[in-house]
Nucleic acid binder design. Structure first.
Lengths: 331, 331
DNA sequence: ATCGGTATTGGCAGCGCTGCCAACGTCACC
DNA sequence: GGTGACGTTGGCAGCGCTGCCAATACCGAT
């Protein structure tokens, strides 16, 4: 019950229960065979002593690793938080522990974090996207642990990839606007150097406009991280330059909401005067006066599936979780 | 360079560099003394072999723990993600590793997660708020590790507490509305059984209304987690019952934004016909057509300070990080 | 009562690293 | 030339647990 400087070990429990160390270990892990009587005595001793197994020691002694490392670009963006949650939940059920770090969208930082993570000998390392520094890839390859790349399947995965095609999402968005009759479509986005997935959506969007025989979109690409404020500024800037636009595709919902708020304030009728489309399917975007037309992505599911594949030690594969076009009231 | 089944150990590096194990350990940790010549040889061997130290073994052998455990109620709520980021960043600089889990606002789950976390022998366990299951408190006390309770200082901390007074925040909000001349003030909130911090804000809010000689607020408290949609529904319900209200205090910005969107859609003038006030200071709430009047909380700072206190092994204390009233355009 | 087979159990060698201590030179100084 | 102090270094005993293997107990069948 009370704490002690020299902690209680397996051996203490074994002595208290009058059994051997290995027996206690077997009972606690419910692995191997032992009698019901033994289990009861061991559990009683554990209870009495207030024993808490030391997983550090366990991890060192056993072969498989109980840790899974996750490096996300950001936590301000709810997208990664959702993925993280899915991963953590699934790992928890599998008796694994998630360790994480935030790269702030910097490849060099991601590299340093992956290096630090590998020192924990994780069963797997999970990263956002398929683009990584050469050093990151090399380390990962040499580490011999599983690698899961999330939220993107447009490219060549190292091992496991779970996500959806951002390029296709961009195409679908463009097509939706074209089909709805819009012809002068612009784009407002954030830094695609950092967020390569947004870059892929933009590429798909451009392709489809071209295929539809439309002029390349007027674009306002801001060299910063996405945010509602930047979306607002971006749309204002774009409209100042190209007032004839009838629709704008945004790099994601944060940016799109910014644009939408600009319209509300500037008295621009949506979608009559200007249609707006986002990406991600954020909860808040469903509850604006007019629900935002966007593409909903299965973030939680992506995290859960990736974690499950790691738990199952599944063979290398790419899982396309798809996405869903949400027809709101802004296009 | 290439991976091997039996991994490269300190001993391999020591032999390659022609020095002893302890010397390699000293060089890699930059701890103790060694010559520049030795460092160079060791580093060369590390490079050649592609050696990655095993932190699991290191943690087991050394006294202090490199891990810090964090259990947050949710990751959907950006508030906790912000705290998590602050913690992770600061720990990283201190060569510690964050491990985390999500309790989904369930005390029993928090208890189970804390138990699981303690098996990692963390240097500290960080939790949201001061209210925890009795079992959680007992385990934490017995564990003998540092405890940091975040985002709330209204109560009796176990060890470290870093946050702000939610009760005071509630009082300040009420006072602000009263001072602005509002007299028929309502409240729309989410489940305060789960989110005790929201409950404390509500308590402060009620106190101040009473002190101002105003009638108790009409309240619409929804027994669910906070969300924009619920805020919207909640305000609609409250206004249907109490159309004479001239201001509404929301349990947080998510709820408040929902209320604001309802007003935009229902044609209720804000703040002329109805004033709206939130809590948290979310980024998006700064960019709505009218910026939301709210209270901004230093979430990132709370995470950083808590992590720093743990790194410094500071004595038990409560740090009030305060909050800031943001005068938007909705009150 | 004997025997093979199965269910339980204990002993102990590591897992890879750190912390401690003894053993080195190497100097400056007497 | 002797001496103590200091900067370096290597050896090795654990940290607490798991995995392996041998030992023992127990069972029904012969």
């Amino acid at each position: 019950m009370e704490q002690r400087s020299t902690s209680i070990t397996l051996l203490d429990v074994a002595e208290a229960a009058g059994v051997g160390e290995s027996t206690v270990s077997r009972v606690l892990r419910d692995h191997g065979s032992f009698s019901e009587k033994t289990r009861a005595r061991v559990m009683a001793a554990v209870e009495t002593l207030g024993y808490v197994p030391n997983r550090i020691a366990g991890a060192l002694a056993s072969t498989g690793s109980p840790l899974v490392a996750i490096v996300v670009p950001s936590l301000s963006n709810i997208v990664f938080a959702d993925v993280l949650r899915g991963v953590a939940q699934t790992l928890e059920a599998g008796r694994r522990q998630a360790v994480f770090a935030v790269s702030e969208y910097e490849p060099s930082r991601e590299e340093a974090l992956v290096a630090a993570m590998l020192a924990w000998r994780p069963a797997a390392v999970m990263l956002a996207g398929l683009e990584h520094a050469e050093g990151t890839r090399r380390m990962l390859r040499a580490a011999g642990c599983r690698i899961a790349e999330l939220l993107d399947i447009d490219g060549t995965p190292q091992d496991l990839a779970v996500g959806f095609s951002n390029r296709t999402a961009g195409r679908v968005s463009a097509l939706h606007m074209v089909q709805r009759g819009y012809r002068r479509i612009g784009y407002v986005g954030h830094d695609i150097g950092q967020d390569t997935r947004a870059g892929k959506r933009l590429a798909g969007f451009r392709e489809t406009l071209a295929e539809a025989g439309l002029a390349p979109a007027s674009e306002d690409i801001r060299a910063v991280r996405s945010s509602v404020g930047e979306g607002r500024i971006g749309l204002a800037a774009l409209m100042a330059r190209q007032p004839q636009l009838d629709a704008v595709y945004f790099s994601n919902d944060d940016m799109a909401l910014g644009g939408y708020f600009h319209c509300l304030e500037a008295g621009i009728a949506v979608p009559g005067q200007l249609a707006i489309m986002g990406f991600n399917g954020l909860d808040i975007a469903r509850h604006t006066p007019q629900p935002l037309t966007t593409i909903e992505t299965p973030r939680d599911e992506i995290g859960r599936i990736a974690a499950q594949l790691v738990l199952d030690d599944a063979p290398p594969q790419t899982v396309d979780c798809g996405f869903r076009l949400v027809e709101g009231a802004t296009v």
